[in-house]
């Protein structure tokens, strides 16, 4: 989907994740230090980390304690365990988002579509269970997640207008990066490697032709 990540969009996507998604969804494979890759400065990354609390310890008294996160900390998950998450969410389990764009058929398009295709009220005759929401793209159409985005749900620092589709686009960009932070490096190295191989293979073909030139076959 992306050759390179749109840094500005991914930064806005982080803001959407922090202010909206993080209330329920973890991002356990991403550390705050990884956010440098989105163009945040060291100070910005440390400022972001300090807004989160992580468990540390044990201290001299043998007690675990909560402390502001450091750049090296992984992003703390909002719930202690799956059971706690279910109790707080009407029985539904909000999945960790670290790999969400790779773990669904449709990848990033799936995430964007889920975020932008809620319908209220549900279509005529659809039997919606209580506490559930109608989503055109969710398998079975009944989703436990309330519509997370509404216009101006966040206030972008760069002045971009926070429409639902803008926020969905930004957070999808961010989550695509989070699922595979090495994607840009992979594609850049790939271009170099393939160009090298194409030239090398051309030479190898010439060599083969040269060696076989004295053989009738």
């Amino acid at each position: 989907m992306f050759g390179t990540f749109d840094r500005a969009s991914a930064q806005r996507g982080w803001q959407v994740y922090e202010e909206v998604c993080h209330a329920c969804h973890g991002l356990r494979f991403v550390a705050f230090r990884n956010l440098h890759a989105l163009g945040f400065s060291t100070e910005q990354v440390e400022a972001i980390a300090s807004r989160f609390e992580v468990q540390a310890g044990p201290n001299d008294e043998g007690e675990m304690f909560m402390t502001p996160a450091k750049a090296a900390s992984h992003i703390p998950s909002p719930f202690a365990n799956d059971q706690a998450a279910r109790v707080a969410n009407n029985g539904a389990l909000p999945p960790d988002l670290s790999l969400i764009t790779q773990a669904r058929v449709g990848a990033a398009d799936y995430v964007y579509a889920i975020l932008t295709h809620y319908r209220d009220p549900a279509p005529e005759g659809f039997n919606l269970n209580s506490g559930m929401f109608y989503n055109e793209y969710f398998p079975g159409h009944q989703i436990g997640m309330p519509p997370p985005l509404s216009d101006d749900r966040v206030t972008y620092l760069d002045g971009t207008k926070a429409t639902v589709s803008q926020m969905a686009h930004d957070v999808t960009t961010f989550l695509t990066w989070a699922a595979e932070p090495n994607m840009e490096q992979r594609k850049q190295l790939g271009i170099t490697v393939l160009l090298f191989l194409i030239v090398l293979t051309g030479f190898l073909y010439a060599l083969k032709r040269q060696i076989w030139s004295d053989v009738e076959h």
């Binding site: 190898l204 060599l207 076989w212």
Partner: peptide
């Protein structure tokens, strides 16, 4: 060997 090297490249 030459033919296999070319094949390997492809």
């Amino acid at each position: 060997t030459a033919k296999d090297m070319f094949g390997l490249g492809v």
